[in-house]
Amino acid sequence: MAKVARLARLDIADSDITHFTEQLAKVMDHFRDVDALDLSAVAPMTQPYPLVNVLRADEEQPCLDRDEVLAAAPAAEDGRFRVPPIIGLVD
């Protein structure tokens, strides 16, 4: 679970990890009921309604106002969003 929390970028205290793990274990336990199902011949359902080829014309639409957007940002500088140093991340 600690690895999952890292993947999800959630800082969770060790004590809470235990609590979460117990709760999630109960939920995962409930999921065992599907283990008995033979699903080998079943196609996964990935879309509730069968649409294909939904496309948009390559036409410009109005943009957002930069000042309005940057005013809502936690930190901005020089027309851009500011973040702390980027280390320990994949590129």
């Binding site: 948009r56 390559d58 036409e59 410009e60 639409q61 109005p62 943009c63 957002l64 930069r66 957007v69 940057l70 020089d78 027309g79 851009r80 969003f81």
Partner: peptide, 27 residues
């Protein structure tokens, strides 16, 4: 070489002022 982005209508243009070619999808 499209006029707009892959999933939204803000311009696909190199060299513009930062954060001017933005829309809700882009952000």
């Amino acid at each position: 070489a499209t006029k707009t982005k892959l999933f939204s209508g803000s311009p696909n243009r190199f060299g513009d002022e930062p954060n001017t070619n933005i829309d809700p999808v882009t952000l």
